[in-house]
Amino acid sequence: MAKKKLTVGVTGLNNIDSPGPGIPVIRALKDMKDFDVRIIGLSYDSLEPGIYMHDLVDKTYQIPLPSAGQQSLLTRLDYINSIENLDIIIPNFDAELFNFIKLQDALKKKMNIHTFLPTLEQFEERHKSNLPEFGVKYGIKVPKSKMIHSMAEIHSLAYEFGYPLVVKGKFYDASIAYSPDQAMAYFNKISGKWGLPIIIQQYTQGTEVNVTAIGDGKGNLIGAVPMRKTYITDKGKAWAGVALEDEELMDIAKNLVKGNKWRGGFELEMIRTEKNEYFLIEINPRFPAWVYLAVGAGQNHPEALVKMALGEKVEPFKNYEVGKMFIRYSYDLICDLKEFETITTLGEL
């Protein structure tokens, strides 16, 4: 049977030392059995490595940064679609999701581009700043946290949280501060990049365990693979990890999706304490960069997402291979200046 042709736009091509999920998602899409997929990269910066990875990305277009607003993005996607006739877009950055969620109807109606995204309510309620309420609503333990809007509030944190504590940005970045001075330094650094508020979170001692998962928007968990990082870079990102067997973690994921009817890919970042308690640190509203481990372990989550985006019914994955590992490596891609010139001046490559 001939494979169905499919054109998919993917963001997050920043396959750098702290990688975006774009390239892993693309690898997963290339593994799909039923589809012959053409990948359109959507990049923000001329140096995102994915732009130059021609064996994975067929063509790349620059798109405006999320801060330029929805109209700019829509105009640009309209242009890209006029050439590429996109079937699906899979956004992979937290910071761009608000815009894509708002634009999903317009994309479908005007350009017949499918997406499979969480609703705005789902997206908003799992924000780091709302995590305490979120935990109560869905019965998940959450470390104590607080939003702060000015440096002056840092002084009182010692009484409330004690040190160390975690200083987090609205969209990205988290640093562990061991003193008020450090907390202030991180406050400045992170607020300068992602704006206010800053989230202060209680430091929870334990092992970090993560789950990459996908929900069908109706309360069913389509797939989930838990993982523990076995090696961490100096930026705190996973360098290597291993698929775990953890029924309790799977139950947490299942109950969460049953409760909030999450639609699309997501990642749970949890801490398992000495006493085997699980604390939710963060929910990422998209696939994590290590999503390809799930594929390797037998669950192709991006493929499930593509099918659901196209309106197909997808049965939940039943199992995965425990003990599958991933080990990240970096690789020096060689390319011509001409390519950099083209993406920089023309915005396409």
């Binding site: 200046l337 010139e341 920089t344 001046t345």
Partner: peptide, 17 residues
């Protein structure tokens, strides 16, 4: 100097538009 308005300085590696 390139027709696209791209300028490259080979001594420093910087590029300009």
């Amino acid at each position: 100097l390139s027709d696209t308005g791209f300028v490259f300085n080979p001594s420093t590696g910087d590029s300009y538009s």
